[in-house]
């Protein structure tokens, strides 16, 4: 357990407020995400979890109050798999649009193995199931050297083994000085302190 030692500041949110369709989703929200921290965003459907995550990622840049600052570009995994059906799993990863750098083949094979896609490396992705496509996307977690991860419902359509594998990966990442923000309805079973942030409280009935 690496705890309490104050890690480096990776992202900071000051006085954040969001109004959608005349409804205040949250307001005066301030928190800082530091290296070595694991955050879980809670709240019912429509509480603004995804919106908050997109603001954190820098995808939403307008329409909210307050300030967001980031130390670096985070790794963001959204609802959509961002997997091209025409490309194989291997190509999807090696030519990933957010790549910037090219990963060596062995690394990609290892990552695919970790998400249980061994033997599917060169299958066109449209032949994979929805869960498998999500796994292809999640394989990026085993390749990335980004410190801040923003994961929006990463366990959707993933089977129990996959979930525990993912949770291990998240815990390992946090233990190695990364930081992870997860939105999920299921409790995280990880050997690490979890900061809970519920958006239900901030909601105005």
């Amino acid at each position: 357990m690496t705890d309490s030692a104050v890690g480096e500041l990776l992202a900071e949110v000051t006085d954040l407020g969001l109004v959608r369709g005349g409804r205040v989703l949250f307001e005066s929200l301030s928190f800082a995400i530091r290296a070595g921290e694991l955050w879980q965003l809670g709240g019912g459907n429509g509480a603004g979890k995804t919106s908050l995550l997109r603001i954190l990622a820098g995808l939403s840049r307008y329409g909210f109050d307050g300030w967001v600052s980031r130390a670096e570009v985070p790794l963001y995994v959204g609802h959509q798999a961002a997997v091209k059906g025409l490309l194989s799993a291997r190509e999807n990863l090696s030519w990933h649009v957010s790549g910037g750098c090219v990963f060596p083949d062995e690394q990609i094979e290892q990552a695919l193995q970790r998400v249980g896609l061994c033997g599917f490396e060169d299958t066109p992705s449209h032949a994979l199931s929805a869960g498998q496509q999500r796994r292809v996307n999640l394989a990026r977690l085993f390749l990335s050297d980004t410190r801040l991860w923003l994961l929006d419902e990463p366990f959707t359509a993933i089977d129990a083994d996959g979930v525990s594998e993912l949770q291990d990966r998240i815990a390992a990442h946090v233990a190695h000085g990364g930081a992870v923000v997860v939105t999920s309805h299921q409790p995280l079973h990880v050997d690490h302190a979890v900061h809970h942030l519920s958006l239900d409280g901030a909601r105005i009935p």
Binding site: A57, G58, L59, V73, P74, L75, Y76, G78, H79, Q80, A81, A82, V83, K84, H96, V97, S98, G99, G100
Partner: peptide
Amino acid sequence: DGSLEQLLLA
């Protein structure tokens, strides 16, 4: 399919 989001974050 969400690739565009990733492209913007790249």
